[in-house]
């Protein structure tokens, strides 16, 4: 019986993914962001049929089995853009570190200042990190993986949709600087926007995304220990 549930929920989730993927590529609206729209579809189905989350959970473990290998494969785009790092490595790392620190510290300040629960703040700390690594960072420091995904998706969607315009308003016009900022803040969605601006900003964004993930994973647990 258990296997039947797992099969049914996996089919439901794959269907929701396929549908939102199709809608996203058809209409290109951030509303159809695959994680956002896909998970809303699944959640609504569970609510409508009064299925408790505990029944869905075992299928989650089956479906995410390949997430680990997929995350390791993120080394490949980083490797393919290694020339960028070879030329301006120190400068790039320095700027990504500063940007990541700004992100992490502002989350902690606003979170504590507005009286949020500790685990909510912790889950939000890695919100500019690509989702698979953000989930791990949140879990290691005492946050919740689902909340972490929500913050990551919200940041990526805002940063991807508004980032290019915002950077223009802020006076950041140099192409590589824009790419670097997009990758540091808005991870994969930022990389997508940076690629539209050109190959070089795309490579900057892709390297920035990986560096931000590594750097944040090192400092987040320490900061949580000291500050929270």
């Amino acid at each position: 019986m258990n296997y039947l549930y797992i099969a049914a929920f996996s089919l439901l989730t794959i269907g929701a993914y396929k549908l939102s993927r199709w809608l996203f590529f058809r209409y290109g609206s951030p509303l159809f962001n695959m994680v956002f729209f896909g998970s809303v579809l699944v959640i609504l189905t569970l609510i409508i049929f009064k299925i408790p989350y505990s029944m869905y959970e075992p299928s989650k473990d089956v479906m995410t089995f390949l997430l680990g290998p997929a995350t390791v494969a993120l080394a490949i785009p980083l490797y393919q853009n290694r020339m960028v790092l070879r030329k301006k490595g120190v400068r790039i790392i320095g700027c990504v570190v500063m940007g990541s620190l700004a992100s992490v510290f502002s989350v902690i300040l606003i979170g504590i200042g507005s009286g949020m629960e500790k685990f909510v703040v912790i889950s939000a700390i890695p919100k500019s990190v690509t989702a698979p690594i953000a989930i791990e960072i949140a879990q290691i420091s005492g946050g919740d993986p689902a909340l972490a995904v929500a913050f990551v998706v919200a940041t990526g969607t805002f940063g991807g949709a508004m980032g290019p315009t915002l950077l223009k308003w802020l006076g950041i016009v140099e192409k590589d600087a824009r790419g670097l900022a997009l990758g540091t803040v808005a991870h994969a969605q930022g990389v997508g926007m940076a690629l539209i601006e050109g190959d070089s900003p795309g490579a900057m964004a892709s390297s920035a995304m990986a560096l931000a993930a590594v750097f944040t994973s090192i400092i987040a647990p320490l900061l949580v220990m000291i500050l929270l």
Partner: peptide
Amino acid sequence: LASNFLLKHITFFFIPIAVGLINW
């Protein structure tokens, strides 16, 4: 072969995880 497939569909894995938001 594997990395192209996994990276193309990496967003899929976040859906079952995000379903946990039902608790929050």
